[in-house]
Nucleic acid binder design. Structure first.
Lengths: 152, 152
DNA sequence: TATTGTTATACTCTATAACTATA
DNA sequence: TATAGTTATAGAGTATAACAATA
């Protein structure tokens, strides 16, 4: 990388995501959930449920963290742990009816809320941005796998 | 918003952000800091120091949170609270020499680390992406100000 | 032996409100 | 009265390691 022309881009990326965080987390909290809880609800929505392991892989939470977050959601009656028919060690985590209703109420609302951001973007701009974000995401994920366990 | 063509983009943004988070926070923790602590160090770097109020505005932390984070950084000898010459209620938070050295060591390293993501991007792509991220950031910040205090 | 998920521990961040010292 | 920052409190997420039950 001879010229490091990416430096301003990295700063922009960090600042943009900081702004995204504030905007997104603020709305989620106003809905009565923490970002982690929303993440679980959104991941379980429109599925038959899944194991802790799968849930952990999708939300990037470790199993120890997951137990705590699920405990709180279960205490609020939003998810249940069903015994797995195929693996006695495992559980199937599902939304309860109440959890499903919450999902249906807040998930589209959150997407709408996020969507208000793009009123100043043309369809073409959105398409371009989406492609670039997809490429970026792919890079992040690839580097994460490679870099796992490194100590810098 | 007639067609809601922004929905896939919102999902992409959220997923990209999640991947960014994992990538960035993972590297920061490998450097021995929490994301909040890194945020403070990065904000104080190359400045004469600033008040808690200003620091809170830049890092989006509330004053109560800030006190705790600063306490831990001060205990590690990375920042100091100097009395302000102009306002007896206020403090000037500065990096210590040790904090400055840490900043100089990890901040460029972190930018380099983030920069590895963009090896697959051309200069033109990076320029476009940067412009779009800047526009996005502006939208987020504008909506945050408007939406503050709303309960949805 | 390896894997799934829970427990236990200790720390960090977060929001909020009451508080102090100064302006 | 208002503001800068601290303290107190309670809750929530995090990493890590030890553990039980099952594969």
């Amino acid at each position: 990388m001879p010229q490091k022309s990416f430096l301003p881009l990295v700063r922009e990326l960090a600042e943009c995501f900081q702004a995204f965080e504030a905007f997104s987390a603020g709305h989620i909290r106003s809905l009565g959930l923490t970002p982690s809880q929303f993440d679980i609800i959104a991941t379980l929505g429109n599925t038959e449920g899944m194991s802790c392991k799968e849930l952990g892989q999708k939300t990037l939470m470790t199993k120890g963290t997951l137990t705590g977050v699920l405990d709180r959601l279960e205490a609020r009656g939003l998810v249940v742990r069903q015994t797995s028919s195929t693996d006695g060690r495992s559980w199937v985590i599902q939304l309860t009816r109440s959890g499903q209703k919450l999902f249906e109420r807040i998930f589209p609302a959150h997407l709408e809320h996020m969507g208000t951001i793009f009123t100043g973007f043309s369809d073409a701009q959105m398409a371009t941005l989406r492609r670039q974000l997809a490429q970026l995401k792919k890079s992040f994920r690839a580097s994460l796998e490679v870099g796992e366990g490194e100590t810098s």
